[in-house]
Design a protein around this nucleic acid. Structure first.
Lengths: 199, 199
DNA sequence: ACGGTTGTGGAGCGTGTGCTCCAATACGGG
DNA sequence: CCCGTATTGGAGCACACGCTCCACAACCGT
């Protein structure tokens, strides 16, 4: 029916990921990707249509992995009404992701939300992006409800600090270095506890 | 003796700073700077020689402000042997800087060390850069000595977490938003305390 | 065997970048 | 008054980028 692909989409995403991990967002260019994979300019654009969409796809694949692990880490405690334990587990998720797939964790440390959530990303991918962003927001709101002491936005903000900002500060450097020491995880747990208890 | 400057170096640095704050490292281009200040291409290169050096000078000016405030915040407690208080004060320094000069604090949140510490920066500025980096290292080592319970590198790493990474996580978003709420500062103090107490 | 469909290769366009180069300019000391 | 000197203005070079375009190749159902 048609000519088969020489390289799967995942192979291209793997190469794109390596470029981003090595040199940041700026390291991902069509020419660099061609050089690394052997794929031609035309193939890349035929497969992804757009550089921003390619970057978004690269991020999306790993963000989904993270979100799945986050849910799995949190669900039990959330059902048991153990809000505090749920937040601690959520904060530790990047460390767990690094254990089971270092490349995935590395990619997520190499990009900011702003790198990916531009308005330049085309429609098939853009809606996936919005969907995932919203799912993550729902998890954060669920956690906020489970540890409620402050109301509304403030609680979500506190949880965001615990689950996003503190892990970025304490875990991301370790992930980039290739190994998450247990000291960092204990520091993170202590910091999360302290932030949750701050009046 | 010579033709006088139409614009002082500081005026150019102010404009460069505004560009970086608004659009990140990528927002600083010679053309954008020319458009904003009216200075010509030739003037910019005559004054700074290099774009990387210009960026480094922009950062350096503010980093010196930060370092001065850091020293001032820390000296008394350090002399009094109050290591823990010194680390807490050091961690809070970005918040104090934002109070007294928001633009300075903003610039420091807009750049990573990697944005500035490239090998492309030319020699008059490069040595200043190294000097300041070393001074900051000395402050961190002094703090590490003052709170010693773990030895050597590990103590410096713990202090770096408290003084660099945690403030970046908890204070920088506030600084970018334009106001540092006292909640964030209390969360930071609590987190620093927790990290210092982590065995 | 052939035709429709899908993927591939690569030339090349337009744009923005850092930077070089040099003529023109404005000042102050002799 | 004029000359040396520091600064300015701007044309222009080389390069890297994203992206378009289209001829061509490989497969499968008929």
């Amino acid at each position: 029916m048609a000519r088969p692909r020489l390289r799967t989409a995942d192979e291209l995403l793997d190469a794109a990921e390596a470029l981003v991990v090595d040199s940041g967002r700026g390291g991902l260019t069509v020419r660099a990707l061609s050089a690394r994979t052997g794929a031609s300019n035309g193939s890349v654009y035929h497969a992804f249509g757009d550089l921003e969409s390619l970057l978004a796809s690269t991020w999306l694949r790993r963000a989904r992995q993270y979100l799945a692990l986050l849910r799995q880490s949190v669900d039990a405690d959330l059902l048991a009404g153990e809000g505090r334990r749920a937040v601690l587990a959520a904060a530790d998720t990047p460390a767990r992701l690094a254990e089971q797939d270092l490349r995935a964790a590395r990619l997520l440390t190499a990009l900011t939300r702003d790198d990916v959530l531009t308005d330049g990303v085309a429609e098939p991918v853009a809606s996936d992006l919005r969907a995932l962003d919203q799912e993550l927001g729902e998890v954060l709101r669920a956690l906020a409800r489970a540890v409620r002491d402050r109301a509304g936005r403030a609680a979500v903000d506190v949880v965001t600090t615990c689950v996003v900002r503190l892990p970025a500060a304490l875990l991301f450097p370790e992930i980039r270095a290739g190994r998450v020491r247990s000291l960092a995880r204990r520091q993170l747990a202590a910091a999360v506890g302290a932030v949750l208890d701050t009046p």
